[in-house]
């Protein structure tokens, strides 16, 4: 049975590294894996999404409406934006961080109140954490992406050792300590 995970966020938040760590972990677990990223224009502060699919044999690399088992959201509004991609009965792991889109910055739109509550009210299982605070605690605000991978790792059936291996394979040596700490803070949250 194939599973689908979506990593959604804002360009610049480091979603690509997270998807690489996740892809590596699934590969180490012995699954067939496909990871789909979009580069280019979407990096510039826009809404970004990465699809990760795994199982015995994966065909399509993309996740469509109503197909995701897990959505890992790096930002509240992005969790809501991609919610329709969640499978009925799927779950969300979300960072409580809010990043104003330009339409909000310039006053053309408002950042909605109660995003997380609205998602809960739709009957969706959602787990939230403040990854930025934990990343600062780990020693670098940029490690919020690894905090979030740690938080999601806990909800999967992949052993912790595999996650740590995957982390080591994808993070440069000099940033490893910070990222290991960030992973633990997410995993134990």
């Amino acid at each position: 049975m194939n599973k689908s995970i979506m990593i959604v966020g804002v360009g610049g938040q480091g979603t690509l590294l997270s998807s690489r760590i996740l892809g590596t972990a699934l590969l180490l677990k012995g699954y067939d894996v496909k990871v789909s990223e979009v580069h280019g224009m979407s990096q510039r502060g826009g809404s970004v999404v990465t699809y990760v699919k795994y199982g015995d044999k994966v065909h399509s690399p993309v996740v469509g409406i109503g197909e995701a088992d897990i959505i890992l959201a790096f930002e509240q509004l992005e969790a809501a934006r991609w919610l329709n991609h969640l499978k009925i009965g799927g779950k969300i792991v979300a960072n409580t961080q809010k990043i104003d889109p330009m339409s909000v910055v310039i006053g053309d739109a408002e950042y909605p109140e109660g995003v997380i509550e609205s998602i809960k009210n739709a009957g969706v299982e959602i787990y939230t954490l403040d990854a930025l605070v934990k990343a600062v605690e780990a020693g670098n605000p940029k490690s919020a992406n690894v905090v979030l991978i740690g938080a999601m790792a806990k909800t999967t059936d992949i052993e912790k050792d595999i996650w740590l291996d995957a982390l080591k394979q994808n993070v440069p040596e000099k940033f490893l300590d910070v990222n290991l700490k960030a992973f633990e803070l997410g995993y134990n949250s």
């Binding site: 990096q43 510039r44 969640l86 739109a109 739709a122």
Partner: peptide
């Protein structure tokens, strides 16, 4: 047809911007 959930939130668009 695909089945999906939606939340009662008005979501402003987030196009890419100059960094």
């Amino acid at each position: 047809d695909a089945k999906s959930v939606t939340a009662d939130v008005n979501i402003p668009p987030r196009p890419p911007v100059l960094c």
